[in-house]
Simulated scan of single mutants.
Amino acid sequence: MLEQTQGLHVVAQTPFLEDGAVDFGSIDTLSAFYYGHGAQGLTVLGVSGEAQKLTVDETIAVAARYVAAANGHRIIAGVSHPNLATLVEVTAQVMAEGADAVMICPPRGICTDEDLIRYFEAVYERIGDVPTVLQDFPASSGVVMSVPAIDRLLVAFPQIAVIKEEDTPSPTKITRLRAELSRPVKILTGNNGQFLVQEMERGADGPMAGFSYPEMLSGVYDLMNEGRRAEAHDLFNRYLPLLKHEAQGQWGIAIRKEMMRRRGALQSNALRGPGPRLTETDLAELDYLVSRMDLPRD
């Protein structure tokens, strides 16, 4: 049940080969890598999963492969799209393939609370009772959702069981959500995990983020739940230089993919074009950064 969501849900990468084709074999190794390092589930086809570079057929095929490799773990499929018809089509197909829920972020062009309500009315008229994660990510969508507006959505649409909170300052907004919402929901956090310890202290139920060392994200979650606050901060701080290095948009995703290639989770660090490719200088800088961090190698 989506209402029981907690712990690390990694925002999964979409693996590509050097020629730009989807690397389905690496979806299997990547899934095993994530689950072996503490992921309770995956969010596939998100912004950092390069979903915007896939055709509809590829989108369904990627989701289906992640479902096949899930081994009992939860799969949430990002279906956000500026074209509502495409969102509806993809939702129907990923749910038919066995996804547990979808994640929806409102599209650009929504300017008022009334626009927001009308948009989700149109969505749920078409997709029905599909369990949903509401993504609050104005830096990407351009849509600012106030706490009262989010509460209106929760009252109107029981399908929404989880909020992915990425509005900044996220700790402050989590505090307000916990205090002001009309019904309880799970709150997971993104922003590449950069504010995870503070978000956990404010009541988040776990991270929904990507990082080449997911064991840090799951480890911080576990330590915070055990009341070991100082140890959680120490673990987070140990990985912070690389975490920050990966939090640089598509270029940071290239760094993340390179690190996971080195750890054996991916065959290639390729992004599908248009996208950055790491230079020899980039790789040398990464080598130096990692050499000073004493990190695990597998």
Rank of each mutant, 00 (worst) to 15 (best):
R65T: 14
R65V: 13
Y66N: 11
V67H: 08
A68H: 11
A69C: 10
A69M: 02
A70P: 13
N71D: 10
N71F: 10
H73N: 08
I75R: 03
I75E: 09
I76T: 14
A77C: 14
G78Y: 02
V79D: 02
V79K: 05
S80L: 09
H81E: 04
P82G: 04
P82E: 11
P82K: 07
L84M: 12
L84K: 14
L84N: 11
L84P: 08
A85L: 10
T86R: 04
L87Y: 14
V88M: 09
E89C: 01
V90S: 10
V90K: 13
A92Y: 07
Q93L: 08
Q93T: 02
V94S: 05
A96L: 03
A96W: 00
A96V: 07
E97Y: 09
A99S: 13
A101E: 09
V102C: 03
V102T: 08
M103T: 02
I104P: 00
C105Y: 12
C105M: 14
C105F: 15
C105P: 00
C105H: 09
P107A: 07
P107K: 06
P107H: 07
G109W: 00
G109H: 01
I110Q: 11
I110A: 03
C111Q: 04
E114N: 13
D115M: 02
D115I: 05
L116C: 12
L116A: 06
Y119P: 11
F120L: 07
F120P: 12
F120M: 05
E121K: 11
A122I: 06
V123Y: 04
Y124Q: 01
Y124C: 00
Y124D: 00
Y124E: 02
Y124V: 00
R126M: 04
R126G: 01
I127S: 10
I127Q: 06
I127D: 06
V130G: 06
V130L: 04
T132S: 05
T132Y: 00
T132D: 03
V133S: 08
L134Q: 11
L134S: 06
L134Y: 10
D136G: 01
D136A: 10
F137V: 03
F137A: 09
P138T: 15
A139D: 03
G142D: 10
G142M: 11
V143H: 08
M145I: 15
M145G: 01
S146G: 01
P148W: 00
P148L: 01
R152V: 07
R152M: 09
